[in-house]
Design a protein around this nucleic acid. Sequence first.
RNA 1: UGAGCUAUGGUGUAACGGUAGCACUACAGUUUUUGGUACUGUCUGUCUAGGUUCGAAUCCUGGUAGCUCAACCA
Length: 561
Amino acid sequence: MIEKTQTEEKSLNFLEEIIENDIKNGKNGGQVYTRFPPEPNGYLHIGHAKSICLNFGLAQKYGGKTNLRFDDTNPSKEETEYVDSIREDVHWLGFQWEKELYASDYFEQLYQWAVQLIKEGKAYVCDLSQEEISEYRGVPTKPGKPSPYRDRSVEENMDLFERMRKGEFPDGARVLRAKIDLASPNMHMRDPIMYRIMHAEHHRTGNKWCIYPMYDYAHGESDSIEGITHSICTLEFEVHRPLYDWFIQALNIHAPQQIEFARLNITYTVMSKRKLLQLVKENHVNGWDDPRMPTICGLRRRGYTPESLRLFAEKVGVARRENVIEVELLEWCIREDLNKRAQRVMSVLDPVKVIIDNYPEGQTEELDAVNNPEDASMGTRKVPFSRELYIERDDFMENPPKKYFRLSPGTEVRLRYAYYITCTNVVKDAEGNITEIHCTYDPATRGGGSPDGRKVQGTIHWVSAQHALDAEVRMFDRLFSSPEPENTEEGKTFLDMMNPNSLTVLRNCKIEPFLKNTKALDHFQFERLGYFTTDADTKDGKLVFNRTVGLKDSWAKTIKN
RNA sequence: UGAGCUAUGGUGUAACGGUAGCACUACAGUUUUUGGUACUGUCUGUCUAGGUUCGAAUCCUGGUAGCUCAACCA
């Protein structure tokens, strides 16, 4: 009997297609080995998260391995601090690397290979200045002309290169160049620089070296040494691929395949490392992990989970065309995750006092509240109730518009998990601000249901005034508010596009006593207000929360319509 | 006046010569102890002009638009 198999396979992205083809054809013995190769010159951001998920995800899917390799070939920019943060962020995202390696591990091997290329007449020492090299190289539309040092003898090249290594020459005096093609339409093939002299202390090799390999020379060889099969990088390296292949071929070593994909862009989000560094250095934000930053550590502190970031990476897909992902997708991903795991809790960010006149003074009772309506296994908790409560200031309106379902004079609403209450009176201060809302409650509605079956239109959250804890809540808006912060035309810099109200601190928030023992990075849904995450640092024992993301629809917006 | 890459709804991403689908967004509705969640529905799409073909988003040619490339950065 033949069974009809409904193969509901998810369609493959172009990377998976390439890899499956390679496996099918027995290339690399059917193995998949990838690498994530950051330069330790800054913190990782969400764009890197996409690359990490791609590299590790692909290897995982096809039973392969992934290395974490630090591309540390330029000591003037690199620091150990960055190495540590990168290691931590990749780990936090949920990935384990096969090996932790450094391009600097290969300096000696790279040097030997350079010697080999010199001996084969494929590389030469050039004494031209930086400006001269640039001039000799020509422009894309016109061929360059050969350096006068291009035809030095092997002996002279060897002598000079050895002396470069020994430190006999000052920075910039000479470089080692590959002898390729000055007429190539691809500028990267016009005798690219392989080594430059740089008397700088390297974060790992110290002062052992004063010549350092360039990216183009080091990267492919590093991939090759590690046995990488698929070297996945972003689109701007596409023009480097012929050079990548040239070195591999000239050296006749294992040939990884470089494949490029389009980097991630997100609306309203600055993704350039240079600009993020500027935001930090000029103190426009409070460090790399400021919750407004698109860095992985910033997102973590804001309350994003590894799962949500991995989901995002999956949802944005991968292709070779330029793209700008709407930030709404990122927000959907974290809501999707937090909705399942975050405990519901009642919290009042902008409190106004409610007094239940017919509730006995001094009486306290405990009511049952469910922790997560989506997940009964998360259980219930007790919420204390008393005569004086706080509710959200905007949950009361003296003169409500139509479709306002919450508290107003004469209307009855449900206090969630508690009682129906009806507003009878309002007390104001000299400026006309409401200071107390007086209500009566119906004792028969305990728990929030009415025996007579009458309905209330609204349900609002509350906390007991005498039991409530004080908390500080930080609300983060988008750092950039213009339609396209990357658009710096009309003389504007990206800093001009910054939203001055991107951080609001609410210091007078009241939260359920239940929240007393929260740990850093605990996630909660404050009913109707959004998702909040305990900040890593609490001040003076005071609870501090960061708002991760709001709920999908804002209440205010609905009222406006 | 060079080379390379890319073009599918508002945004992403599928369809690999044979019914243009999925997700996000937006809007509408059902359920609901918060207007959330869940579920249902609606709106929008193959850059353009030719060609090949019974049949083209897909193949070919021309155009147009966008991106990348002229660091001793990665």
